Computed example of a mutant assay.
Amino acid sequence: MNFPEPLLQGRLIRRYKRFLADVRLPDGTEVTAHCPNTGSMLGCQPENARVWLSDSNNPKRKLKYTWELVETGPGQLACVNTARPNAQAREAIEAGRVPELAGYDGCRSEVRYGEEKSRIDLLLSGHPSQPDAWVEVKNVTLAEGHEGFFPDAVTTRGQKHLRELMAQVARGDRAVLFFVVNHTAIEEVRPADHIDARYGQLLREAVEAGVEVVAYRAELASDGGDPTGRLALGEPVPVNLVP
C-alpha cells in the first residue's frame, strides 16, 4: 500500500497535548497537524526533525494535516501514524506475503471477543486445515541502535491483549501477535523489559502457551533514506525473546 497523495515535508517544532504537533513548512509557514499516536513516541520526536504530513483534502476537517513520518536519525524513518499498521498487516496477509498466515479466505476487523471485552484487530477464517486465527497488530517504532522494542511505555491494554490471545489458544484457535516494524533501522524486535517488565513477562508466557509472534518491516525509505511513499510490508524481522 502507498500513501494516497505525495507527502508534505516540514520540520517538527513540538508535539503537545498528545494529539497535536506544530510543524514549520519549507516556506516558513507554521501549521498544526493531527498526531495520530496515543503512545509516548519515545525516540520519534527529535527537536527540529524532518517530518512528513499527509493532506486530508477535507475542508470540513479542523486540522488539515496528519503527521505520518519522522526522520529519527540520518537516513532513518519511522511511521508514527498508528492508524496505519492494521491496514499494512491486512494487505500483506491478503496478498500472501505472510507465509505464516497464508491460506485463509476471510478477514474481519475489530471483532469483539474475550472475557476482558476486547476487539481483535484481524480475525482470519476459512482455512482448509487450520483453525481461525486471531491477530493482534502492534506498531514498533522504538529503536535503540538496530534493535526495536515494544512497548514504548507501560501498557496495561497491551497486557490485556496478551491474556486474551492466550485464552483463544486455550479454546483451540490460533492467536498471533503481529509486529509491524515501522522503523527502517530496526533489524530485530524485542520486548521492552526496561520499560514494561510485566509486558515482557506476559509475552514470554503467551509464547509458551502457544501464541505465535511474527514481525515484518515496512518499506518506508529508499536507499538514500528518503520516503518512498510505500507502506507495504516486505521482509520479516526476527523476534528475540531472550531476557
Results as ranks from 00 to 15, higher is better:
28 G>T: 02
84 R>T: 00
21 A>D: 05
241 L>G: 01
146 H>Y: 07
161 H>L: 00
159 Q>G: 12
104 Y>R: 08
40 S>D: 06
105 D>H: 09
116 E>N: 12
219 E>N: 14
234 G>T: 11
93 I>K: 06
132 D>H: 07
106 G>K: 12
239 V>R: 03
169 V>C: 06
173 D>W: 11
26 P>S: 03
169 V>T: 13
136 E>L: 01
105 D>V: 11
70 V>E: 02
72 T>W: 09
175 A>L: 05
35 C>E: 04
33 A>G: 00
11 R>W: 05
174 R>Q: 15
197 A>V: 10
225 G>T: 06
40 S>P: 04
238 P>M: 03
175 A>D: 00
183 H>G: 08
190 R>N: 02
108 R>A: 14
123 L>T: 00
159 Q>K: 14
48 N>C: 06
23 V>S: 07
33 A>W: 01
61 R>C: 03
18 R>E: 10
184 T>I: 04
155 T>G: 07
199 Y>T: 03
177 L>V: 01
181 V>D: 05
194 H>S: 12
169 V>Q: 09
203 L>F: 03
232 A>R: 04
47 E>N: 03
108 R>P: 03
205 E>Q: 15
201 Q>Y: 09
122 L>N: 04
167 A>Q: 13
116 E>I: 01
114 G>N: 11
206 A>S: 09
13 I>L: 13
4 P>W: 03
136 E>F: 00
99 P>K: 08
65 Y>H: 12
112 R>T: 10
174 R>W: 13
141 T>V: 15
82 T>M: 09
218 A>T: 11
174 R>P: 08
186 I>T: 13
27 D>E: 08
20 L>F: 13
113 Y>E: 06
116 E>G: 04
152 D>L: 10
236 P>V: 03
177 L>D: 06
106 G>V: 07
137 V>R: 01
151 P>K: 11
49 A>E: 09
34 H>Q: 07
5 E>Q: 09
181 V>I: 09
184 T>Q: 09
185 A>Q: 11
52 W>V: 00
63 L>K: 09
77 L>P: 11
33 A>P: 03
138 K>P: 02
218 A>D: 05
89 A>C: 09
143 A>M: 05
241 L>K: 06
218 A>N: 04
54 S>E: 03
223 D>Y: 05
87 A>S: 13
148 G>S: 10
107 C>F: 07
82 T>N: 14
156 T>Y: 12
167 A>H: 11
69 L>K: 02
92 A>R: 07
37 N>Q: 04
180 V>C: 14
172 G>Y: 11
59 P>Y: 06
43 G>Q: 05
145 G>V: 12
120 I>G: 08
153 A>L: 12
124 L>A: 13
189 V>Q: 10
10 G>Y: 10
242 V>W: 05
211 V>P: 01
161 H>C: 12
36 P>D: 10
124 L>F: 05
35 C>I: 01
66 T>C: 01
149 F>W: 14
232 A>C: 07
